[in-house]
């Protein structure tokens, strides 16, 4: 009876210790990536190659999702604003929601599930098929050759994708607000321009996405590198990448928002 009461508590304790332990390991891994980044930044074509896989191949999903999110914002924003007689402020509403929150967060979530999971699966499979071992036996550090280029490619791609997501969202809001509902095009843009501040809204949003990019790619490459080298292990690692990334993005978003705005 006492045992049944204690066992969830014990599990919680284990879970907390495990989480702290993982945080320590992942921080050391991060330092290892930074220490081994010199080579990948000197041989920048390695990073460019990975940017193709993490950035270019994520373009479609970012463009389409951004457009739809903007359209939904336009529709929902209009029905709410029109009750207060401020439908003219739609442009400002769409732009501010996207720039400050939705753009960086949604782009990062999409990036985690599109590029992050692929990164984990790729590195995990390289480990399972002894490719990482082969590399280190060939006196090539896999962190420098495999992990660091992917990390930097992700960090560089993320703000680009977030900016594109914002633009597509604003265009989507325009399509619904102006072309469909028939608001004035001039007031859509002028309300936006009057309320959006370059530094506070645009730049801070992009800084957010830079942090998200670092967090997501760090989690993705770590989970891949740390995966149990079996089919089940790699698939579990891929799942963990998406779940952990999503949680970290949302938690980090709160912290960054509290600091920035």
């Amino acid at each position: 009876m006492f045992e049944t009461l204690l066992s969830p508590l014990r599990k919680l304790g284990h879970w907390v210790i495990e989480a702290i332990w993982r945080l320590g390991v992942i921080s050391r891994f991060f330092v290892a990536i930074l220490m081994n980044s010199g080579q990948s930044l000197l041989r920048f074509h390695l990073v460019i190659r990975e940017m193709y896989f993490s950035g270019v191949l994520s373009l479609i999903i970012i463009v389409v999702s951004g457009l739809f999110v903007g359209m939904v914002l336009g529709l929902q924003g209009y029905t709410t604003l029109v009750r207060f007689g401020s439908a003219d402020a739609l442009g400002a509403l769409v732009a501010l929601s996207l720039l400050r929150e939705l753009g960086p967060v949604l782009a990062a979530l999409l990036f985690a599930s599109r590029a992050g999971s692929a990164m984990t699966a790729e590195i995990g499979l390289m480990k399972a098929t002894e490719q990482l071992d082969a590399m280190s036996v060939m006196a090539v550090n896999p962190i420098a050759r495999v992990v660091a280029p992917r990390f930097w490619a992700g960090v560089l791609s993320m703000p680009i994708l977030a900016a594109l997501f914002n633009v597509m969202g604003i265009i989507g809001g325009y399509a619904v607000g102006v072309l469909m509902i028939g608001l004035d095009s001039g007031s859509y843009w002028s309300q936006m321009q009057a309320n959006v501040d370059l530094h506070v809204d645009v730049v801070n949003g992009l800084i957010k996405s830079l942090f998200f990019g670092m967090a997501v790619t760090l989690i993705a490459v770590y989970e891949g590198f740390d995966a149990t080298p079996t089919a089940a292990g790699v698939s579990a690692a891929t799942t963990r990448t998406v779940v952990t990334s999503a949680l970290v993005i949302l938690a980090l978003d709160f912290v960054l928002t509290a600091f920035m705005f």
């Binding site: 732009a95 720039l99 703000p159 680009i160 994708l161 900016a163 594109l164 914002n166 633009v167 604003i170 843009w189 936006m192 321009q193 959006v196 501040d197 370059l198 809204d201 645009v202 992009l206």
Partner: peptide, 13 residues
């Protein structure tokens, strides 16, 4: 990416 950032800075902000 650069075009998007330019759009956000000039047209939006």
């Amino acid at each position: 990416g650069l075009a998007s950032i330019a759009f956000l800075s000039l047209k939006v902000a």
